[in-house]
Design a protein around this nucleic acid. Structure first.
Lengths: 204, 204
DNA sequence: CCGGCTATGTGAGTGCTTCTAACATATGTT
DNA sequence: AACATATGTTAGAAGCACTCACATAGCCGG
């Protein structure tokens, strides 16, 4: 099974659902080669169609990548909601859970993670993506408010939520970029998540 | 002055120092268009040479980018050393200063910053870069030890240094990727740096 | 001062890429 | 059955990284 393997194709001139197949091929290649190395031609080879075919379904290369980004964000969002629900409201571990999901997503799908957060994407689909992101972030803010026993998201809650986001975001990048090699210490991610959650949630 | 402007060229067949001129052209273009959009051909147009010329000085495109990365890291390192020296040893503001430099570098040179930390670069020049990075990080660890009044870099110091690095690293990316737009609050970077420095440096 | 060696430039060409245009075929609607 | 529309194809333009054969400039020993 090389990366050139076709992703099941209905025999004949037309495909079953080429759009979905191209999105899946794109996602796979972004993971395998990295977002910067992905090429439309290769996705076509994987899907078993000509290089002109994608342009019936996507405006350009960026729109293909944007589709993968959207799918990834939705995947991450539902994971976050599920993870939080495993513990009672207000418990600190709910916040740790959010961090766990963030880190797990980044490390299991580094290509898609980098696609979403890494590269500069001022271009297409920005609107869609910019509407999706605040929903994720509101989840974090709500959990912080719950953890502090507040019933509103005030300035203090917002600041703490932002600190937490910043931290797991940075940790994600350091982990997937293998920058942790410069630290001569094995990183205890689980311990760090608890440590940070505590330090951010306590009152000084 | 478009981006196609030539960067001063000594008349004649040979240049003064084409290598340096190409590195500068590369740096400029990486800032203007982003690391992913940079092309060797365009750098050649800027430097006013044929597209074959760079290959007398660099193995390939990645090696050109690596040269820009190295220069950027050295720039950042000397800024960090200078910033720390402005305050007495052991003072918390020395740590805040390290964060300030990190953030300032990321926001004033987002292209180079993303080049250094963002994209996956398993390829060329990794050795050079991997030797440089620990020197930067040691500076952070030493400051944390000083701030805690310790004379050695023990496990506790390492953990705190890593937390600080993680935080400013994440904040840098959120700022340059304009992801802070999803937060409906203006980000007080200066306040955040102090807040984090305190929360990480105190004993719970 | 000159012959040649090496460093550093050029022009032309290969094979890849993204994307477009004109054409072909399949699907569904009346 | 006939046509409109959706969705595929082939061919090709323009741009990319990179290579090779060739040209020229600077330098060094005689």
């Amino acid at each position: 099974m090389s990366s050139e393997t076709e992703i099941q194709r209905k025999e004949g001139y037309h495909h079953g659902d080429l759009r979905a197949q191209l999105v899946e091929a794109t996602r796979r290649l972004v993971e395998e080669k990295g977002p910067g190395q992905f090429s439309v031609s290769e996705a076509c080879r994987v899907a078993g169609v000509s290089t002109a075919a994608p342009y019936r379904h996507f405006k350009d290369k960026d729109e293909m990548l944007a589709a993968v980004m959207m799918a990834g964000m939705e995947r991450k969002f539902s994971m976050m909601r599920a993870a939080v629900a495993e513990f009672p409201e207000g418990e600190l571990e709910r916040i740790v859970q959010l961090g766990r999901v963030y880190i797990r997503f980044a490390t299991t799908e580094p290509g898609v993670f980098r696609l979403i957060f890494g590269l500069a994407h001022d271009h297409a689909k920005r609107e869609e993506l910019m509407e999706e992101a605040p929903r994720h972030y509101a989840l974090v803010e709500d959990e912080v408010a719950l953890g502090l026993g507040r019933d509103v998201v005030d300035e203090d809650v917002k600041t703490r939520a932002f600190m937490l986001w910043t931290f797991v975001h940075g940790l994600s990048f350091l982990l997937i970029d293998e920058k942790v090699d410069v630290v001569e210490m094995p990183i205890d991610v689980e311990g760090l998540l608890w440590e940070i959650a505590r330090r951010v949630m306590i009152d000084r």
